[in-house]
Design a protein around this nucleic acid. Structure first.
Lengths: 137, 137
DNA sequence: TTGCCACTTCAAGTCGACTTGAGGTCAAGT
DNA sequence: ACTTGACCTCAAGTCGACTTGAAGTGGCAA
């Protein structure tokens, strides 16, 4: 079986070795053994790291990602949670679209009065509503 | 002129007083004076806070939002910066769309083999590339 | 066999955005 | 005039996700 040490894994993933050790400590990945003190990983670790990357991009915390990996090693079993997160992301996309439009509006509008513009105000109201939720991330 | 104290402002915005003090310390908002020790705010603070909320929703750090407020108190004057940020947000929207699709794919696919699906792998590659940036937010 | 240095562990530090707590002040109601 | 308690300041704590540093170990080239 082909194995890779932490330096190689770091090189191939772009993640610092410290992060990989940290992920192992958090049980997000696992090494298949040691050569002396040194960790050895096999190819499955790449998949695992890709899933972690996906989860991070989706805004999951490491704890949440941990929860996705069930005890038997299989991953992402909770479909309901996945759908919920997808919906959350959809929502965030909509907010970002409003915010982008708001920024562009401000950039285009030559007036100092864009703060009075109803379009801008509407966008701000949307942003403000989501403040509490957004601030939690 | 109508003024409001920190408790009233907190009540009307939903933000804790500690957060409002913190924002004042960061120069994101300003009080118009004091009654004894107590801060007094006027109506303009609501607009200011709405802009801060907007910025936070857009994923800006408080420092970035500070930068938007120019020294003379007017806001969002740097059109180039605004366009840049809008483009950045556009980019983030695209990533989130991929991530959402990835989550849905995993949720739908009843096989343990979704990890081999080319669509999924492509999405994961995109997510992985953006990991560093996403992790910073 | 020796020596280098990439790896190891473990504790502590960092960063952003706040929150919490101790100890102090003062506006306002009785 | 006194008390109450909401406000004040400033320092320190928190949380998540890592990073950094010191001190130790051992694989491998010469």
């Amino acid at each position: 079986m082909k194995t890779i040490d932490i330096a190689g894994l770091s090189h191939r993933t772009g993640l610092p070795a410290s992060t990989l050790r940290y992920y192992e400590e958090r049980s997000l990945i696992s090494s298949i053994g040691r050569k002396g003190l040194r960790r050895l990983f096999d190819a499955t670790v790449f998949q695992r790291l890709a899933l972690v990357a996906l989860g991070r991009s989706a805004g999951f915390s490491l704890s949440e990602i941990e929860a996705f990996f069930s005890s038997d090693g299989s991953a992402f079993i909770d479909r309901k949670l996945l759908h919920e997160k997808a919906a959350e992301i959809d929502h965030q996309i909509q907010i970002l679209q409003h915010v982008r439009d708001g920024l562009l509006h401000v950039a285009e509008c030559p007036e100092p009065s864009h703060l009075e513009c109803p379009r801008f105000q509407k966008m701000m109201r949307i942003a403000a509503k989501k403040q509490a939720r957004a601030a939690k991330r």
